[in-house]
Amino acid sequence: MTFKETLMIAITTATLTFVATLLSSKFKNWFDWLDSTNKFIRDHSYIQLRELYLELYAIVAQSEYLRHYSKVQKGYDEVPFIEIHREHHTISMDPSIEDVVIQIKDAVTEFNKLSIAELIINKGAYASQDLLKLAVAYRFIHPYYKELKNNGLDIIQIEELELIKKIVSSIVKETNCYLKKCNMKYNKSEIRTGLMDNKIFKNNINI
């Protein structure tokens, strides 16, 4: 082998080694970035679940159990969320004394539509942008939906219905999406439909 051939082999080897080292470093940096990004997404998704979404999911779960327990015949489009109101009535036999109605508040009644919106707004740092927008809109419309008794009520009822439907569907979908990102058990059907799977109530409880 001539000196020229030996030199060419040495130069080629050095060049290939340099390129291989450079590519190895680039790939390592890329994989490190990718791993760091994925870890951030997992960690942030877990925080969102812990701080907000699992609590919202529990509120929706109570609604779905009430749907099963009360044998609600209307579909999800008509009744996307079911809440309970309890009252204590005191009836006076004395005409000069007015009857008294007291709203009863407990853990069950506090799981209601307005509490969903307020929870999302109060913990807005953990909510998706769309869910936060829907919650703000619902909080605005809620007092009109509850109080107005004129011809405009039908329009407000429709708006209230559509907002709570979107909120409930978003909660169900997004909770499962974050569970998936955390490599935790999730429901594919709930991601696809936005409807909570309530078969666990039907299969295990006969009412």
Rank of each mutant, 00 (worst) to 15 (best):
T109I: 04
V136C: 02
E159H: 14
Q48M: 14
K113A: 15
S96A: 11
V72K: 10
E160F: 13
F111Y: 09
D94M: 02
F31Y: 13
V79I: 15
N204K: 09
T175I: 06
I205M: 08
A127D: 08
F27K: 12
D77W: 03
L163A: 05
A117G: 05
I167C: 03
L131T: 05
L22P: 00
I191G: 11
I205P: 01
K28R: 11
D154R: 13
E110H: 04
K74T: 08
I97L: 15
I155W: 05
T90P: 00
Q48L: 04
S92N: 14
C182G: 02
N203W: 04
R86A: 14
H142P: 00
K165V: 04
K28M: 07
L54C: 04
V172C: 02
A125H: 03
K71T: 06
T15N: 04
N203T: 10
E159F: 10
A107C: 06
L195F: 10
L56F: 04
E64L: 02
N204V: 07
L49A: 02
L56G: 03
I207Y: 12
S45Y: 00
H44F: 14
K71H: 13
N203V: 01
L153G: 00
K26S: 11
L66G: 06
A135Y: 05
M184Y: 12
V100W: 05
V168M: 05
L66A: 04
N122S: 15
I167P: 06
V101I: 15
L56K: 09
D197S: 01
K180T: 02
K71I: 01
Q129R: 11
E98D: 07
V100F: 03
A14Q: 08
F40H: 08
N187D: 13
N29S: 14
I167Y: 02
Y53H: 09
L16I: 13
I82C: 06
N151Y: 12
E147G: 05
K166G: 00
E83Y: 12
Q157Y: 00
S92P: 03
I82N: 01
I164W: 03
M8F: 10
T175S: 12
E5P: 01
A58M: 11
N183F: 06
L16C: 10
K173S: 11
Y46G: 01
H89F: 11
E147F: 09
R86K: 14
T175Q: 08
K181G: 00
K173C: 04
Y65L: 07
D130M: 03
D35S: 13
D32N: 15
S169G: 04
A107G: 03
V101Q: 12
K202S: 08
A20I: 10
Y65K: 10
